[in-house]
């Protein structure tokens, strides 16, 4: 799923860097803060919500636009993610049109 998302993002002319979990993503962000993050909720070691909290506490951590991408479709859980700083939310399964639409909605395209 991560590789599919990365390919779609690259087709939208973005440079995509993959991270296997929240820890790896946080380590990358500390070295080079990205403009946007496509963030899964369910990840090993550090899940999406914990990552988002730690990201926002980093210097310049409020810079990336975070688009959540999750199989979670409960409206209250989605609102929970938005309240914690996600700009948009993609419900799995998704396709290229959906990612493009969501990126457009937050002004990335």
């Amino acid at each position: 799923m991560r590789k599919v998302a990365a390919r779609i993002v690259e087709q939208l002319h973005f440079e995509a860097i993959e991270a296997a979990d929240g820890l790896e993503a946080l380590s990358y962000c500390r070295s080079a803060m990205p403009d946007a993050i496509l963030l899964d909720w369910s990840m090993p070691t550090m899940d999406g919500m914990e990552f988002l909290e730690k990201l926002r506490a980093e210097p310049n951590g409020d810079h990336p636009l975070v688009v959540m991408c999750s199989a979670e479709t409960n409206p209250e859980r989605i609102q929970f993610a938005l309240d914690r700083g996600a700009a948009e939310y993609i419900m799995k399964p998704f396709d290229g049109d959906i990612i493009a639409s969501k990126f457009e909605a937050v002004g990335l395209i």
């Binding site: 948009e88 419900m91 959906i98 639409s101």
Partner: peptide, 15 residues
């Protein structure tokens, strides 16, 4: 459908 509401509709508008 799940796909229709994700084409163009911002998540806050969906909720």
């Amino acid at each position: 459908s799940h796909f229709e509401v994700q084409r163009g509709l911002p998540i806050r508008s969906l909720l």
